[in-house]
Design a protein around this nucleic acid. Structure first.
Lengths: 200, 200
DNA sequence: CTTGACACCTACCGATTGGTAAGTCAACAT
DNA sequence: ATGTTGACTTACCAATCGGTAGGTGTCAAG
């Protein structure tokens, strides 16, 4: 049932929530996008919150999957981290949508925290910390230091990932394209430089 | 008129927009926070959009002011950049509110772009790029490369700045405090390492 | 031929949204 | 005394919000 109404609703909801935020989208918006009424949506998802929660669950699952895939590789720790961050900044439109929705959740969840099980990000961060501490020079770092590192890099990637429309506005098409081209190499440099500068 | 109703409304609006986003806050919410009716607010600001626009204008002004202040100092370029980023991650609650609101604007402005004059961030980014290109080894970098650098660092700082509640949820109080303590030093390391790794 | 489940609909609900209209009331200038 | 003005109010509006109630039509199983 890859194209069932239900899964189409989830896809559409993800896109709209990512673009306009939870309060910026009505269930009617989501349903009419597929030529349905909001009652059709409510037939598949009992409430708006539940729908949002399911979108979030899908996303956290995808993230863990991605990290697990890279963690399972036989590369060096530093190389794995580089590849992980590079992967997050891919051109894939779905990745941008996911980054936007996660950023919004980061901003909003103070007001929806426990209801949606947001702390799902916890194992994801734990894995990242573990990966960082395997890098040369980082084995003696504290968890807080390793977390600061991976979190800063996460920020470097995701901040950019959500900025595409704004940057295109500020820089214009050619400027935005030049940035898009320069960004990955600069990011790799940043990740490498950061790992090579362990604390202490 | 430092404590005029008008300026109090602007302060309250900034806080609430930062916490819940444009669509998550009603003008009635903002007004009742000060014991007023929403019509009192509409007396001072003709529409909700105009109110939001004024908040945004204030904020971009503050950012440019901060950057100008640091740019005017006699420090070395690299030192100025380090201090600028460190300043953004201060404990100041107002800084956190500003970071949250800017992040929301970054996410939302595709749908409100020209109306609110968001491209005000442009001179701010230009100044940052100029400051980066003054650092040793960066004079031959392209604008796109310098922008990639400063934008990544901006992301590293702001992503963390908006994450406080979520991280407290994930890590618990002690863990969050340890991170808060480790973050600035790690950030300085990151900025330094990044500047010392010019492209090419 | 009937039954029941499923997917979806129209009709409706009370609450809330941003905003308008038309005041009231105190302070101040003439 | 008499306007005028600024700050704020109550009363109201149509539109939209999330959600409920009670259908209709289709299709497969018995």
């Amino acid at each position: 049932m890859a194209h069932s109404t239900r899964s189409q609703l989830l896809v559409t909801a993800r896109e709209l929530f990512a673009e306009r935020g939870f309060y910026g989208v009505s269930i009617a918006n989501i349903a009419t996008e597929l030529g349905l009424t909001k009652q059709a949506l409510l037939h598949h998802f009992p409430t708006k919150e539940k729908l949002y929660g399911e979108v979030l669950k899908e996303i956290s699952g995808e993230l863990e999957e991605l990290l697990a895939e890279i963690a399972a590789s036989s590369e060096q720790p530093a190389q794995r981290l580089r590849r992980f961050y590079a992967r997050l900044v891919s051109d894939d439109a779905d990745d941008a949508i996911r980054a936007r929705l996660l950023m919004r959740e980061l901003l909003d969840n103070r007001y929806r925290a426990e209801t949606a099980g947001v702390w799902r990000l916890k194992p994801f961060l734990k894995s990242l910390i573990a990966m960082a501490k395997e890098a040369p020079g980082w084995s003696h770092a504290t968890d807080a230091q390793a977390l600061a590192l991976v979190y800063q890099l996460l920020g470097a990637v995701n901040y950019y990932a959500i900025s595409a429309p704004t940057l295109r506005g500020i820089l214009g098409g050619p400027g935005a394209r030049a940035l898009k081209q320069a960004f990955p190499a600069q990011l790799e440099t940043l990740v490498e430089a950061a790992i090579k500068s362990p604390p202490g």
